[in-house]
Design a protein around this nucleic acid. Sequence first.
DNA 1: TCTGGGGTCCTAGGACCC
DNA 2: TCTGGGGTCCTAGGACCC
Length: 416
Amino acid sequence: MRNRNIFHIDANSAYLSWEATWRLQHGESLDLRDVPSVVGGDPKSRHGIILAKSIPAKKYGIKTGETLYSARQKCPDLLIVPPNYELYMKCSNGMFDLLKEYSHLVQRYSVDECFLDYTESEKLFGSPLKTAYKIKNRIQEELGFTVNIGISHNKLLSKMASELEKPNKVHTLFSDEIASKMWTLPVDDLFMVGNKTLPKLKRIGISTIGDLAKANLSHMKSYLKSHGVLIWNYANGIDESPVREEDMVQKGVGNSTTIAFDVTNQREAHLILLSLTETVSMRLRKKKSLARVVSVSIKDKDFAYYSHQCALCAPTDSTNVLFKYVKKLFNEAWKGEPIRHLGVRLTELCSREFYQISIFDEKSLDKYRRIDETVDCLRRQYGKKSVIRGSFLHSGLKPIAGGVGEEEYKMMSSHL
DNA sequence: TCTGGGGTCCTAGGACCC
DNA sequence: TCTGGGGTCCTAGGACCC
Protein backbone atom coordinates (compact mmCIF):
# COMPACT_ATOMS: atom_id res chain seq x y z
CA MET A 1 0.00 0.00 0.00
CA ARG A 2 1.31 3.43 -0.89
CA ASN A 3 2.12 5.81 1.88
CA ARG A 4 -0.91 7.64 3.08
CA ASN A 5 -1.18 10.60 5.42
CA ILE A 6 -4.02 10.18 7.88
CA PHE A 7 -5.11 12.64 10.58
CA HIS A 8 -7.17 11.71 13.59
CA ILE A 9 -8.89 14.71 15.13
CA ASP A 10 -10.23 14.29 18.66
CA ALA A 11 -12.09 17.01 20.58
CA ASN A 12 -10.62 17.20 24.10
CA SER A 13 -13.20 16.15 26.75
CA ALA A 14 -15.77 16.88 24.09
CA TYR A 15 -19.06 17.21 25.96
CA LEU A 16 -17.43 19.15 28.76
CA SER A 17 -15.50 21.56 26.50
CA TRP A 18 -18.55 22.17 24.39
CA GLU A 19 -20.62 22.85 27.47
CA ALA A 20 -17.89 25.20 28.77
CA THR A 21 -17.64 27.04 25.46
CA TRP A 22 -21.38 27.54 25.26
CA ARG A 23 -21.56 28.86 28.80
CA LEU A 24 -18.73 31.33 28.22
CA GLN A 25 -20.42 32.56 25.06
CA HIS A 26 -23.64 33.07 27.03
CA GLY A 27 -22.20 35.34 29.65
CA GLU A 28 -20.99 32.92 32.28
CA SER A 29 -17.62 33.86 33.76
CA LEU A 30 -16.59 30.44 35.04
CA ASP A 31 -14.86 28.14 32.56
CA LEU A 32 -15.90 24.57 33.45
CA ARG A 33 -12.56 23.35 32.15
CA ASP A 34 -10.70 25.20 34.92
CA VAL A 35 -12.49 23.48 37.82
CA PRO A 36 -13.34 19.87 38.75
CA SER A 37 -16.53 19.42 36.72
CA VAL A 38 -18.41 16.75 34.80
CA VAL A 39 -21.28 16.31 32.40
CA GLY A 40 -23.54 13.69 33.88
CA GLY A 41 -27.07 12.29 33.90
CA ASP A 42 -29.66 12.45 36.64
CA PRO A 43 -29.37 9.77 39.33
CA LYS A 44 -33.05 10.24 40.27
CA SER A 45 -34.05 8.80 36.93
CA ARG A 46 -31.21 6.24 37.25
CA HIS A 47 -29.07 7.89 34.61
CA GLY A 48 -26.37 8.87 37.07
CA ILE A 49 -23.12 8.32 35.25
CA ILE A 50 -20.26 10.55 34.12
CA LEU A 51 -20.38 11.31 30.39
CA ALA A 52 -17.37 13.66 30.32
CA LYS A 53 -14.95 15.18 32.83
CA SER A 54 -12.68 18.20 33.03
CA ILE A 55 -8.95 17.75 33.44
CA PRO A 56 -9.07 19.00 37.06
CA ALA A 57 -11.79 16.38 37.71
CA LYS A 58 -9.56 13.73 36.18
CA LYS A 59 -6.90 14.60 38.75
CA TYR A 60 -9.30 13.35 41.44
CA GLY A 61 -9.35 9.96 39.70
CA ILE A 62 -12.81 10.49 38.24
CA LYS A 63 -13.44 8.32 35.21
CA THR A 64 -15.93 8.47 32.36
CA GLY A 65 -18.70 5.95 32.93
CA GLU A 66 -18.45 5.82 36.69
CA THR A 67 -21.39 6.76 38.89
CA LEU A 68 -21.90 10.33 40.02
CA TYR A 69 -22.19 8.92 43.52
CA SER A 70 -18.70 7.50 43.39
CA ALA A 71 -17.32 10.64 41.71
CA ARG A 72 -18.69 12.78 44.52
CA GLN A 73 -16.98 10.55 47.07
CA LYS A 74 -13.71 11.38 45.34
CA CYS A 75 -14.47 15.09 45.01
CA PRO A 76 -17.31 16.51 47.13
CA ASP A 77 -17.18 19.93 45.43
CA LEU A 78 -17.58 18.44 41.98
CA LEU A 79 -19.60 20.64 39.65
CA ILE A 80 -22.15 18.59 37.71
CA VAL A 81 -23.97 19.81 34.61
CA PRO A 82 -26.63 17.93 32.62
CA PRO A 83 -26.00 16.91 29.00
CA ASN A 84 -27.31 18.90 26.04
CA TYR A 85 -27.09 16.63 23.02
CA GLU A 86 -28.36 19.15 20.52
CA LEU A 87 -25.53 21.50 21.40
CA TYR A 88 -23.00 18.66 21.01
CA MET A 89 -24.47 17.88 17.61
CA LYS A 90 -23.91 21.47 16.49
CA CYS A 91 -20.33 21.53 17.75
CA SER A 92 -19.67 18.21 16.07
CA ASN A 93 -21.03 19.53 12.78
CA GLY A 94 -18.92 22.67 13.10
CA MET A 95 -15.78 20.61 13.49
CA PHE A 96 -16.73 18.31 10.60
CA ASP A 97 -17.47 21.22 8.24
CA LEU A 98 -14.15 22.87 9.03
CA LEU A 99 -12.28 19.61 8.38
CA LYS A 100 -14.01 19.16 5.04
CA GLU A 101 -12.16 22.25 3.82
CA TYR A 102 -8.94 20.24 3.98
CA SER A 103 -9.97 16.98 2.32
CA HIS A 104 -12.95 15.46 0.56
CA LEU A 105 -12.27 12.28 2.53
CA VAL A 106 -13.35 12.90 6.11
CA GLN A 107 -14.87 10.13 8.18
CA ARG A 108 -16.98 11.02 11.15
CA TYR A 109 -16.02 8.28 13.54
CA SER A 110 -18.14 9.52 16.45
CA VAL A 111 -19.57 12.83 17.70
CA ASP A 112 -16.14 14.01 18.74
CA GLU A 113 -13.71 12.16 16.49
CA CYS A 114 -12.92 12.31 12.79
CA PHE A 115 -10.41 10.73 10.46
CA LEU A 116 -9.12 12.86 7.60
CA ASP A 117 -7.23 11.46 4.63
CA TYR A 118 -4.63 14.12 3.85
CA THR A 119 -2.80 12.11 1.16
CA GLU A 120 -4.20 14.02 -1.80
CA SER A 121 -4.40 17.33 0.04
CA GLU A 122 -0.68 17.75 0.56
CA LYS A 123 -0.24 19.25 -2.93
CA LEU A 124 -2.77 21.94 -2.07
CA PHE A 125 -2.04 22.74 1.56
CA GLY A 126 1.55 21.74 2.16
CA SER A 127 3.15 19.68 4.88
CA PRO A 128 0.87 17.57 7.08
CA LEU A 129 2.33 18.83 10.32
CA LYS A 130 1.91 22.48 9.35
CA THR A 131 -1.70 21.89 8.30
CA ALA A 132 -2.49 19.95 11.47
CA TYR A 133 -1.41 22.90 13.59
CA LYS A 134 -3.40 25.22 11.37
CA ILE A 135 -6.53 23.09 11.80
CA LYS A 136 -6.04 22.78 15.55
CA ASN A 137 -5.65 26.55 15.94
CA ARG A 138 -8.55 27.35 13.66
CA ILE A 139 -10.89 25.09 15.65
CA GLN A 140 -9.79 26.78 18.84
CA GLU A 141 -10.26 30.30 17.47
CA GLU A 142 -13.37 29.79 15.37
CA LEU A 143 -15.24 27.16 17.39
CA GLY A 144 -13.88 27.81 20.87
CA PHE A 145 -12.65 24.36 21.90
CA THR A 146 -9.38 22.47 21.67
CA VAL A 147 -8.56 19.27 19.84
CA ASN A 148 -5.74 16.77 19.65
CA ILE A 149 -4.55 15.75 16.22
CA GLY A 150 -2.64 12.56 15.52
CA ILE A 151 -0.77 12.08 12.25
CA SER A 152 0.48 8.85 10.73
CA HIS A 153 0.25 6.54 7.73
CA ASN A 154 -2.85 4.69 8.86
CA LYS A 155 -5.94 5.17 10.98
CA LEU A 156 -4.84 3.03 13.90
CA LEU A 157 -1.55 4.88 14.38
CA SER A 158 -3.08 8.33 13.92
CA LYS A 159 -5.71 7.44 16.51
CA MET A 160 -3.07 6.22 18.93
CA ALA A 161 -1.09 9.42 18.25
CA SER A 162 -3.97 11.71 19.10
CA GLU A 163 -4.28 9.96 22.49
CA LEU A 164 -0.70 10.69 23.51
CA GLU A 165 -0.57 13.94 25.49
CA LYS A 166 -3.64 16.11 25.98
CA PRO A 167 -5.00 18.70 25.52
CA ASN A 168 -4.44 20.95 22.52
CA LYS A 169 -1.57 18.98 20.99
CA VAL A 170 -0.44 17.64 17.61
CA HIS A 171 1.46 14.33 17.63
CA THR A 172 2.99 12.16 14.94
CA LEU A 173 3.37 8.41 15.23
CA PHE A 174 5.23 7.17 12.18
CA SER A 175 6.77 3.72 11.85
CA ASP A 176 10.11 4.74 13.30
CA GLU A 177 8.38 6.24 16.34
CA ILE A 178 6.30 3.18 17.26
CA ALA A 179 8.89 1.69 19.59
CA SER A 180 9.58 4.89 21.51
CA LYS A 181 6.08 6.38 21.64
CA MET A 182 3.69 3.40 21.61
CA TRP A 183 5.42 0.24 22.78
CA THR A 184 6.18 1.73 26.16
CA LEU A 185 2.47 2.27 26.91
CA PRO A 186 0.36 -0.16 29.01
CA VAL A 187 -1.29 -2.71 26.76
CA ASP A 188 -4.83 -1.57 27.57
CA ASP A 189 -4.02 1.82 26.02
CA LEU A 190 -4.13 -0.02 22.70
CA PHE A 191 -7.30 0.38 20.67
CA MET A 192 -9.42 -2.80 21.05
CA VAL A 193 -7.80 -4.03 24.25
CA GLY A 194 -10.57 -3.67 26.78
CA ASN A 195 -11.51 -4.86 30.24
CA LYS A 196 -11.87 -8.54 29.35
CA THR A 197 -8.77 -8.91 27.23
CA LEU A 198 -6.43 -7.13 29.65
CA PRO A 199 -6.41 -9.90 32.32
CA LYS A 200 -6.00 -12.56 29.62
CA LEU A 201 -2.91 -10.75 28.33
CA LYS A 202 -1.57 -10.19 31.85
CA ARG A 203 -1.88 -13.94 32.48
CA ILE A 204 0.61 -14.68 29.72
CA GLY A 205 3.01 -11.96 30.79
CA ILE A 206 1.99 -9.20 28.40
CA SER A 207 1.70 -5.83 30.08
CA THR A 208 2.87 -3.27 27.52
CA ILE A 209 1.95 -2.73 23.87
CA GLY A 210 5.57 -3.64 23.09
CA ASP A 211 5.16 -7.01 24.83
CA LEU A 212 2.16 -7.73 22.65
CA ALA A 213 3.95 -6.60 19.49
CA LYS A 214 6.81 -9.00 20.17
CA ALA A 215 4.57 -11.92 21.17
CA ASN A 216 4.28 -14.94 18.89
CA LEU A 217 1.49 -14.39 16.37
CA SER A 218 0.33 -18.00 16.09
CA HIS A 219 0.31 -18.23 19.87
CA MET A 220 -1.92 -15.12 20.02
CA LYS A 221 -4.15 -16.63 17.37
CA SER A 222 -4.72 -19.88 19.21
CA TYR A 223 -5.18 -18.03 22.51
CA LEU A 224 -7.54 -15.22 21.44
CA LYS A 225 -8.71 -16.31 17.98
CA SER A 226 -9.27 -13.54 15.42
CA HIS A 227 -9.21 -10.86 18.11
CA GLY A 228 -5.68 -11.98 19.00
CA VAL A 229 -4.56 -11.45 15.42
CA LEU A 230 -6.24 -8.05 15.30
CA ILE A 231 -4.59 -6.63 18.40
CA TRP A 232 -1.22 -8.16 17.49
CA ASN A 233 -1.40 -6.29 14.18
CA TYR A 234 -2.43 -3.10 15.95
CA ALA A 235 0.44 -3.42 18.41
CA ASN A 236 2.76 -3.57 15.40
CA GLY A 237 1.12 -0.56 13.80
CA ILE A 238 -0.46 -2.62 11.02
CA ASP A 239 -3.81 -1.38 9.70
CA GLU A 240 -4.93 -0.94 6.11
CA SER A 241 -8.51 0.21 6.69
CA PRO A 242 -9.55 3.10 4.46
CA VAL A 243 -10.96 6.45 5.60
CA ARG A 244 -14.56 5.81 4.68
CA GLU A 245 -16.85 8.38 3.24
CA GLU A 246 -20.15 9.31 4.73
CA ASP A 247 -22.42 7.02 2.76
CA MET A 248 -21.46 3.95 4.78
CA VAL A 249 -24.31 1.53 5.11
CA GLN A 250 -25.62 1.29 8.61
CA LYS A 251 -26.29 -2.26 9.78
CA GLY A 252 -29.04 -1.59 12.27
CA VAL A 253 -31.01 0.93 14.30
CA GLY A 254 -31.87 0.55 17.94
CA ASN A 255 -33.27 2.49 20.84
CA SER A 256 -33.18 1.54 24.48
CA THR A 257 -33.97 3.18 27.76
CA THR A 258 -33.36 2.82 31.44
CA ILE A 259 -36.65 3.35 33.23
CA ALA A 260 -36.77 5.57 36.31
CA PHE A 261 -38.39 2.72 38.28
CA ASP A 262 -38.46 -1.07 37.99
CA VAL A 263 -41.20 -2.29 35.69
CA THR A 264 -43.03 -5.26 37.11
CA ASN A 265 -46.04 -5.75 34.87
CA GLN A 266 -46.52 -6.58 31.24
CA ARG A 267 -48.82 -3.64 30.51
CA GLU A 268 -46.19 -1.08 31.48
CA ALA A 269 -43.46 -2.98 29.71
CA HIS A 270 -45.56 -2.99 26.54
CA LEU A 271 -46.08 0.77 26.76
CA ILE A 272 -42.38 1.42 27.06
CA LEU A 273 -41.68 -0.96 24.21
CA LEU A 274 -44.28 0.88 22.14
CA SER A 275 -42.56 4.21 22.74
CA LEU A 276 -39.23 2.65 21.76
CA THR A 277 -40.76 1.08 18.67
CA GLU A 278 -42.18 4.48 17.68
CA THR A 279 -38.74 6.11 17.83
CA VAL A 280 -36.84 3.33 16.20
CA SER A 281 -39.29 2.83 13.35
CA MET A 282 -39.38 6.58 12.71
CA ARG A 283 -35.61 6.51 12.34
CA LEU A 284 -35.89 3.49 10.05
CA ARG A 285 -38.39 5.24 7.79
CA LYS A 286 -36.26 8.37 7.73
CA LYS A 287 -33.45 6.25 6.31
CA LYS A 288 -35.85 4.84 3.72
CA SER A 289 -35.02 1.37 4.94
CA LEU A 290 -36.89 -1.77 5.92
CA ALA A 291 -35.85 -4.22 8.60
CA ARG A 292 -36.05 -7.99 8.47
CA VAL A 293 -34.97 -8.84 12.03
CA VAL A 294 -36.40 -7.47 15.26
CA SER A 295 -34.84 -7.93 18.66
CA VAL A 296 -35.90 -7.01 22.16
CA SER A 297 -33.46 -6.72 25.03
CA ILE A 298 -34.09 -6.74 28.74
CA LYS A 299 -31.86 -5.73 31.64
CA ASP A 300 -33.26 -6.69 35.01
CA LYS A 301 -32.87 -4.95 38.33
CA ASP A 302 -29.66 -6.92 38.99
CA PHE A 303 -28.21 -5.86 35.62
CA ALA A 304 -28.58 -9.34 34.14
CA TYR A 305 -28.99 -8.80 30.42
CA TYR A 306 -30.63 -10.96 27.80
CA SER A 307 -32.26 -10.60 24.42
CA HIS A 308 -34.59 -12.35 22.04
CA GLN A 309 -34.88 -11.87 18.31
CA CYS A 310 -36.77 -13.15 15.32
CA ALA A 311 -36.71 -12.84 11.57
CA LEU A 312 -39.79 -11.48 9.76
CA CYS A 313 -41.19 -13.21 6.70
CA ALA A 314 -41.02 -9.89 4.84
CA PRO A 315 -39.01 -6.78 5.75
CA THR A 316 -41.10 -3.86 7.00
CA ASP A 317 -40.96 -0.31 8.36
CA SER A 318 -44.45 -0.25 9.83
CA THR A 319 -44.69 0.75 13.49
CA ASN A 320 -47.71 -1.47 13.99
CA VAL A 321 -46.23 -4.56 12.38
CA LEU A 322 -42.94 -4.12 14.21
CA PHE A 323 -44.69 -3.59 17.51
CA LYS A 324 -46.63 -6.84 17.10
CA TYR A 325 -43.33 -8.72 16.91
CA VAL A 326 -41.80 -6.67 19.72
CA LYS A 327 -44.65 -7.68 22.04
CA LYS A 328 -44.41 -11.32 21.03
CA LEU A 329 -40.65 -11.37 21.58
CA PHE A 330 -40.94 -9.67 24.94
CA ASN A 331 -43.64 -12.04 26.15
CA GLU A 332 -41.58 -15.05 25.13
CA ALA A 333 -38.40 -13.79 26.72
CA TRP A 334 -39.41 -12.07 29.96
CA LYS A 335 -38.83 -14.23 33.01
CA GLY A 336 -41.12 -12.07 35.16
CA GLU A 337 -38.45 -10.34 37.26
CA PRO A 338 -38.41 -6.54 37.79
CA ILE A 339 -37.07 -4.75 34.71
CA ARG A 340 -34.67 -1.82 34.73
CA HIS A 341 -33.97 -1.33 31.04
CA LEU A 342 -35.66 -2.22 27.75
CA GLY A 343 -34.40 -2.05 24.18
CA VAL A 344 -35.69 -2.54 20.66
CA ARG A 345 -33.29 -3.06 17.78
CA LEU A 346 -33.87 -3.56 14.05
CA THR A 347 -31.27 -5.27 11.87
CA GLU A 348 -30.85 -6.91 8.47
CA LEU A 349 -31.82 -3.65 6.84
CA CYS A 350 -32.53 -3.25 3.17
CA SER A 351 -33.53 -0.40 0.94
CA ARG A 352 -37.25 0.36 0.74
CA GLU A 353 -37.16 0.56 -3.05
CA PHE A 354 -36.68 -3.19 -3.50
CA TYR A 355 -39.73 -4.15 -1.53
CA GLN A 356 -42.32 -1.60 -2.65
CA ILE A 357 -44.34 -4.21 -4.48
CA SER A 358 -44.68 -6.80 -1.77
CA ILE A 359 -45.50 -4.07 0.75
CA PHE A 360 -48.49 -2.94 -1.23
CA ASP A 361 -49.75 -6.48 -1.62
CA GLU A 362 -51.80 -6.22 1.50
CA LYS A 363 -54.42 -3.57 2.01
CA SER A 364 -53.92 -3.27 5.78
CA LEU A 365 -50.18 -2.71 5.32
CA ASP A 366 -50.93 0.06 2.87
CA LYS A 367 -53.17 1.69 5.46
CA TYR A 368 -50.50 1.32 8.17
CA ARG A 369 -47.99 2.89 5.86
CA ARG A 370 -50.15 5.92 5.25
CA ILE A 371 -50.69 6.39 8.98
CA ASP A 372 -46.95 6.18 9.64
CA GLU A 373 -46.24 8.70 6.90
CA THR A 374 -48.80 11.13 8.25
CA VAL A 375 -47.58 10.85 11.83
CA ASP A 376 -43.92 11.22 10.79
CA CYS A 377 -44.83 14.31 8.84
CA LEU A 378 -46.70 15.91 11.74
CA ARG A 379 -43.90 15.11 14.14
CA ARG A 380 -41.33 16.61 11.80
CA GLN A 381 -43.38 19.74 11.54
CA TYR A 382 -44.70 20.20 15.05
CA GLY A 383 -42.25 18.24 17.17
CA LYS A 384 -41.89 14.64 18.27
CA LYS A 385 -44.54 14.91 20.92
CA SER A 386 -47.21 16.50 18.76
CA VAL A 387 -48.75 13.12 18.02
CA ILE A 388 -48.85 10.52 20.76
CA ARG A 389 -50.75 7.33 21.39
CA GLY A 390 -53.79 7.56 23.63
CA SER A 391 -52.41 4.73 25.72
CA PHE A 392 -49.73 7.02 27.12
CA LEU A 393 -52.20 9.52 28.58
CA HIS A 394 -52.14 9.36 32.38
CA SER A 395 -49.63 6.50 32.22
CA GLY A 396 -46.80 8.58 33.66
CA LEU A 397 -44.55 7.24 30.91
CA LYS A 398 -42.81 9.06 28.08
CA PRO A 399 -44.58 8.49 24.76
CA ILE A 400 -41.36 8.77 22.79
CA ALA A 401 -38.38 7.09 24.40
CA GLY A 402 -34.79 6.84 23.28
CA GLY A 403 -32.99 8.96 20.74
CA VAL A 404 -30.32 11.53 21.41
CA GLY A 405 -30.86 14.60 19.30
CA GLU A 406 -33.10 15.83 16.56
CA GLU A 407 -30.71 14.78 13.85
CA GLU A 408 -29.12 11.44 13.25
CA TYR A 409 -25.46 11.40 13.93
CA LYS A 410 -22.89 8.72 13.51
CA MET A 411 -21.96 6.85 16.64
CA MET A 412 -19.52 4.43 15.20
CA SER A 413 -18.25 1.38 16.72
CA SER A 414 -15.29 -0.65 17.52
CA HIS A 415 -13.99 -1.07 14.03
CA LEU A 416 -11.87 1.33 12.04
C1' DT B 1 -29.43 8.95 44.89
C1' DC B 2 -25.44 3.19 42.35
C1' DT B 3 -24.15 1.54 37.51
C1' DG B 4 -26.47 5.45 29.80
C1' DG B 5 -27.26 4.75 25.08
C1' DG B 6 -25.80 4.16 20.46
C1' DG B 7 -23.29 1.09 17.59
C1' DT B 8 -20.19 -3.24 15.07
C1' DC B 9 -18.18 -7.65 14.84
C1' DC B 10 -17.21 -12.47 16.31
C1' DT B 11 -18.28 -17.10 18.05
C1' DA B 12 -20.71 -21.20 19.30
C1' DG B 13 -24.36 -24.35 18.93
C1' DG B 14 -28.48 -26.19 16.79
C1' DA B 15 -31.46 -26.91 12.71
C1' DC B 16 -31.70 -28.18 8.22
C1' DC B 17 -30.29 -29.55 3.59
C1' DC B 18 -27.66 -32.18 0.32
C1' DT C 1 -29.54 -51.83 11.48
C1' DC C 2 -26.24 -48.24 11.48
C1' DT C 3 -24.09 -44.04 10.49
C1' DG C 4 -20.90 -38.95 7.12
C1' DG C 5 -19.59 -34.47 6.60
C1' DG C 6 -19.93 -29.89 4.61
C1' DG C 7 -22.43 -25.64 4.03
C1' DT C 8 -25.69 -22.21 5.45
C1' DC C 9 -28.94 -19.96 8.27
C1' DC C 10 -30.58 -18.62 12.70
C1' DT C 11 -30.18 -17.21 17.49
C1' DA C 12 -27.97 -15.91 21.91
C1' DG C 13 -24.34 -13.97 24.07
C1' DG C 14 -20.02 -11.55 24.55
C1' DA C 15 -16.32 -8.13 23.50
C1' DC C 16 -15.19 -3.76 22.01
C1' DC C 17 -15.76 1.32 20.67
C1' DC C 18 -17.34 6.42 21.82
